[in-house]
């Protein structure tokens, strides 16, 4: 089966992609780039870097910009998936949804409307196990947005030590960042032919509500 992956460039969609590739042909990535951080469905920061990630993966990318309101962003997603179906002949969609029934419901409905299979290989996974699995696969992950975590986390690499600290604070924060506590960018993972190198960035926002804006990045040899 040919599938597309809903791809934000963060840890969950990259892990979902890795699992999808074990079984299916991933014909394209689909990325929705929200205009602001208010989006309740899609990952916000640095979606432009997805273009570099797609180049490193050597997988075609369908990228669309969407507004923050749910109705119009779901319409944009519908159109993007329809394009994936018509142009790349995909029969299924793979997402990195973990626990949000709100998000899963909307993805399932759109897939059903388009007569596409919907796969959510991380669904209901223990969040700590997702972080550990990504690290064991050799993912290089940095924090690019925090909302509730200290802004000193921005730009830091996810490590086993940080995962252990998240596990200790389980109940106060969602360790996978599903509550919007943080968002990530994957600089390297096993399917990347080259890795991302960030050479210029800026931090905007306040102590516990800040974003790492990447101004310059390139692909370099691994």
């Amino acid at each position: 089966m040919k599938v597309c992956v809903l791809y934000s460039g963060g840890k969950d969609s990259n892990l979902a992609l890795l699992k999808a590739r074990e079984e299916f042909e991933v014909s394209c990535l689909v990325t929705l780039s929200p205009r602001s951080e208010e989006s309740t469905i899609f990952h916000y920061p640095n979606t432009e870097l997805v273009k570099l990630q797609a180049e490193s993966l050597d997988i075609p990318l369908i990228m669309k910009t969407c507004s923050d309101d749910e109705k119009s962003s779901l319409k944009v997603l519908y159109d993007a998936l329809r394009k994936a179906k018509e142009f790349y002949r995909v029969e299924g969609v793979v997402t990195g949804a973990i626990r949000s029934t709100y998000q899963a419901t909307r993805f399932q409905r759109i897939c059903d409307d388009l007569e596409l299979w919907c796969f959510n290989p991380l669904w209901l996974r223990d969040e700590i196990s997702i972080l550990n699995e990504a690290l064991e696969f050799g993912f290089e992950i940095i924090f690019v947005r925090v909302a509730g975590l200290d802004k000193s986390m921005l730009g830091k690499k996810l490590t086993k030590d940080i995962v252990r600290k998240f596990a200790e604070r389980y109940g106060y924060i969602n360790p996978a960042g599903e509550g919007g506590e943080y968002e990530t960018l994957v600089l390297d993972m096993p399917l990347f032919k080259k890795k991302l190198k960030i050479s210029e960035f800026e931090i905007v926002g306040k102590d516990y509500d800040a974003t790492l804006i990447i101004k310059k990045a390139e692909l370099v040899e691994k």
């Binding site: 699992k19 999808a20 796969f119 669904w123």
Partner: peptide
């Protein structure tokens, strides 16, 4: 039918 679906529908039950 597909092992990838088992990650979503079987693994949570097994856990």
């Amino acid at each position: 039918k597909y092992p990838l679906s088992e990650e979503e529908f079987v693994r949570p039950i097994v856990e």
